[in-house]
Design a protein around this nucleic acid. Structure first.
Lengths: 339, 339
DNA sequence: CCAACGCAGGAAAACGCTTTCCTGAGGCTA
DNA sequence: TAGCCTCAGGAAAGCGTTTTCCTGCGTTGG
C-alpha cells in the first residue's frame, strides 16, 4: 500500500507539501511541485489512509445508524431518508443491523463510538426493558458527553433529539375507522409486545374502542414477529380463537400482507367477511389484492428529519419533531353495515 | 474523549499494560493490575479509538459492499446474505449505495480503499460502458495489488471471484415457458439497457424465441427504471404499441408488480387475457393477486456466497460460482391454448 | 545598501494505539 | 552464595496523516 511518504519521495518533496497538495490545504504551493505530486499520486494509485487522516485531524465525519434490519422494507424506507440527508452533507453512514437484539444494539453503540462517528441515529423501536434502557441511556450519555450527537426515531425516553411518529394516534385512526362503522369484534395482529411501537399502536386502538363503548379483550390480540410470516401466524391464531371477527387491524403492513394470505387460504373474503387495516403504508400496500387500507407514516421523511436533527449541532434542549399519521382508505376495509 | 493514556494514569500503570489488558493480549498480567485497569475503563467509560487501533495493528477487519440501493428488495435480500456471513466472521460491513451512478461507484471504491477494508463486494449489476468498466477495473486492480480482495455478483469481466446468477438461463426459462405453450406475441418489460442484468436476461428470452421459431421485435421491448413505477410505465407503453400481446415478461419482480397494476387499471385480466412472468422471486411475488409466476434466484444465498469468497483469501485463479435459476409457476401465467 | 517583510517549503510534533524490546526482581539450580 | 532463567511490567518506536512552527530565500522600501 503506497503511503504519503512514498508519494513525497517520488515527487521529491516533503510529506508536508505532498499532504497539502493532496488534501487541498489553503497553503500556497507552486504549480511545479503540485504537478509533480499529482503525477506521483496517479502513478502510485495513492489513496490516503482514512484512519490516519481521522487520527491526525481531530474531525469526525462519519455518522452511525442502528436499525433492526435494513432489509425490512420499513427500515429500508427510513434508511433511504437517512442516507439522502447524510450524503447531501458529505457524510459516510455506517449502518448497523441489531436484528432486534438489545445486546447487539448496545454493542453497536460502542462500535460506533469507537469509530468516532459524529452522530448516532437510533431508528429501531424502543423496548420495554428497564435494564436495557438504562444501559443504553448510560452508553449514549457517555457518548454525548464527548461531543457526540444522538437522535432517535420514536422512543422519547432516550436523551437526544427525536422524531416521533404518531403511533398512538395512528392506532386510534385505524380503530375509530372500524368501531365507528359498525364493527364490534375487531382482532389485532400485533408485533412483539416488548416493542414500544407495538404497545403505542395498541394503546391507540384501545382508546378508539373505549370511545365507542367497546373493548379489546386479550384473546383478540395475537402477538407474533413483525413480518409477513408473523402476520400469517397471528391471523391463524386469531381466527381460531374468535371465528366471529368482522375486522382485523395489523400493526404493520408486512403483517397485514401475511394476514391477507391466511384469510385467502381459508377462503374468507376481504373485505366482504372481514375488513383489514394495516399500518405504515409501505409500497406493497397498493399492490396486494384487495389494496390495503392502512395508516400512512412518511417513512423516508422521518429518516431525513432524524438525520437532519443529528447533523444540526446547535446546543439547546432536546428537540422533538412529531410526525403525523394519516388513514388511507383502500379496498380492504368497509363499514360493517354495508353487508 | 478518554484515551488509553487516561485509563493508564488512573489505574497507575503504563499505557502498554493497559493496552494489553483491554485488547486481550496473550501476555500475562497480574490480576491485581487487571482489576485496576478494568475499573478505570469502567469509570471513564473508555472505548478504544478504532482508527488508532487500525493504524497500530496493520490488520484490516472491515469489509465494503457496493450495491445499487439497499432499500430495493432485491439488494436488501442480497445484503442480508452478505451481512450474515460477515458478522459470523466478526467483520464490520460498510454498505455503499451507488444509486446506479457509475461515477459514484468509482468513488466508493476509493473510499473503501481509504477505509482499509479487507475486501470489497460489488453486488450491483454491471454496466455496458467501456470507459467506466476500464476505470473500475484499474481501481480494483490497484486495490487487489495491495492485498485487497474483490468479489462480484454477476459481471464476469471484472477481476476477482464472482457469483454468477444464471440470468441468461433464467430469461430462457421464462421465454420457453411462454413460447412453448402457444404464446406468440410476447412483450418484455425491461430494466435500463445499460445494465448487464437486463441484456443477459433479454438474451435468454431471445434464445427461447429463436428455438420456437419466434422473434422478439424491438417494439415489443420497453425499457424503463428497474422498479415498480418503471414496470407500470413500460407496460403502458407496450400495450399501446402492441395491443395484441398475450404475454409479458418483466425482467424483475418489482417491474412485474408495476405491470400488474397497469394491467389491472386497464381491465386486462391476468392470466385470462395476458400472462405475466416476473424475475427474482422476491417475497412480494407470492402476495400479489394473481400470485406471480417468476424465475427464482436465491438472493440471500448469493450474498452469502459472495461474502464467503471475499473472505476466503486463498490464492489461486479467480473462482466463479454459478447460481441456478428456476422457474416458479404460479397463477399469473397459463398456456395460450387453454383459452 | 540594509532591514523588514512575504512566502514557499521542510522539520518535527502530535493524534491514540500496539508491540517489540528491555529491565529488574524473584526463584531456581549447582 | 553465585549464576541463570523466568516473568511482570515499562520505555519507546512505530502506524500514516496533518499542522504548527521554523528556515531561508527573494522582494521591497526607506
Amino acid at each position: 500500500m503506497a503511503t504519503l511518504a512514498d508519494v513525497a519521495r517520488r515527487a521529491g518533496v516533503s510529506p508536508a507539501t505532498a499532504s497539502r497538495i493532496i488534501s487541498g490545504s489553503t497553503k500556497l504551493v507552486t504549480d511545479e511541485l503540485r504537478a509533480r505530486v499529482l503525477r506521483a499520486v496517479d502513478e502510485l494509485q495513492y489513496v490516503p489512509n482514512a484512519h490516519a487522516q481521522l487520527l491526525a485531524r481531530a474531525q469526525r465525519t462519519a455518522v452511525g445508524v442502528i436499525v433492526h434490519d435494513v432489509s425490512d422494507p420499513y427500515f429500508a424506507e427510513i434508511t433511504r431518508g437517512l442516507q439522502q440527508v447524510a450524503t447531501a452533507h458529505g457524510r459516510l453512514v455506517i449502518i448497523c443491523n441489531s436484528y432486534r437484539d438489545p445486546a447487539r444494539e448496545l454493542e453497536y453503540v460502542e462500535l460506533l463510538r469507537a469509530q468516532q462517528v459524529a452522530a448516532i441515529v437510533l431508528a429501531g423501536s424502543g423496548y420495554h426493558d428497564a435494564a436495557f434502557t438504562k444501559a443504553l441511556k448510560s452508553k449514549l450519555a457517555a457518548y454525548t458527553r464527548t461531543g457526540g450527537r444522538v437522535s432517535v426515531i420514536g422512543r422519547h425516553e432516550l436523551p437526544g433529539d427525536a422524531v416521533m411518529p404518531a403511533n398512538e394516534e395512528g392506532g386510534y385512526l385505524a380503530g375509530a375507522e372500524l368501531f365507528t362503522t359498525g364493527h364490534r369484534k375487531v382482532g389485532v395482529v400485533a408485533g412483539p409486545r416488548v416493542l414500544t411501537t407495538t404497545t403505542d399502536r395498541l394503546a391507540g386502538l384501545r382508546r378508539a374502542a373505549r370511545e365507542s363503548g367497546r373493548t379489546l379483550p386479550a384473546k383478540r390480540i395475537a402477538y407474533a414477529g413483525f413480518d409477513r410470516d408473523g402476520g400469517a401466524e397471528a391471523t391463524a391464531a386469531l381466527l381460531d380463537a374468535s371465528p366471529d371477527l368482522t375486522a382485523i387491524v395489523a400493526l404493520n403492513d408486512s403483517m397485514a400482507v401475511g394476514a391477507l394470505a391466511t384469510l385467502r387460504e381459508r377462503g374468507i373474503d376481504v373485505p366482504g367477511q372481514v375488513s383489514l387495516i394495516g399500518f405504515d403504508d409501505m409500497s406493497i400496500a397498493r399492490d396486494v389484492t384487495p389494496a390495503l387500507s392502512t395508516v400512512r407514516l412518511p417513512l423516508t421523511e422521518m429518516g431525513a428529519r432524524a438525520m437532519s436533527l443529528a447533523l444540526d449541532n446547535t446546543d439547546g434542549p432536546a428537540r422533538v419533531e412529531p410526525v403525523e399519521a394519516v388513514l388511507i382508505r383502500r379496498a380492504s376495509s368497509q363499514p360493517l353495515t354495508s353487508r
